[in-house]
Amino acid sequence: MAITINGQEHALPDDPRVTLLDLLRGDAGLTGTKKGCDHGQCGACTVLVNGMRINSCLALAVTHDGDEVTTIEGLGSPTEPGVMQSAFLAHDGFQCGYCTPGQICSATAMLEEIKAGWPSDATEDLEGAPEITGEEIRERMSGNLCRCGAYTNIVAAIREAAGEDA
């Protein structure tokens, strides 16, 4: 049993209670993924599993054998930041930084979801192709809480990363 994290294979834990989040922050040594609530209520632990964003705190690691996980560390590094990471930096889309990796992972997946045509609660025409509007971004990012209140800047960062005028 193994799991692939940012392209590297990792053993799964012996204790089935260990969540994907605790595996990442513990044995895998990837503390970029944050624990904010441990109950799927804040989004700080958001990672991509096979390209889909999930709350890693609500996923048992053992259920993910064979899966490919991408964390914030997989999206870029201080020397080579990814597009979304750079956009957050440029727009001051964070303050304390604790929700930030989750916001960035979430935003990265979100743009793909819009491209794939998935609707959201903010989509007026369910059968049409959703557009990257402020309201769409805000609704789709509502699973990522930011208590510092950087939302305005986060939306601007995402718009830039999406190639829109910020």
């Binding site: 922050r25 040594g29 990837l30 503390t31 970029g32 993924t33 944050k34 624990k35 964390t71 914030i72 560390e73 999206l75 870029g76 590094s77 201080p78 930041p81 990471q85 750079s86 957050f88 930096l89 440029a90 001051d92 964070f94 930084g97 604790y98 930030t100 990796p101 960035i104």
Partner: peptide, 21 residues
Amino acid sequence: IERPEGLLKVTGTAPYAAEFK
């Protein structure tokens, strides 16, 4: 100016209290 610690925060490499190995 951009935050000097910003790159660490956006790449998940700024260590918070529980994260020291």
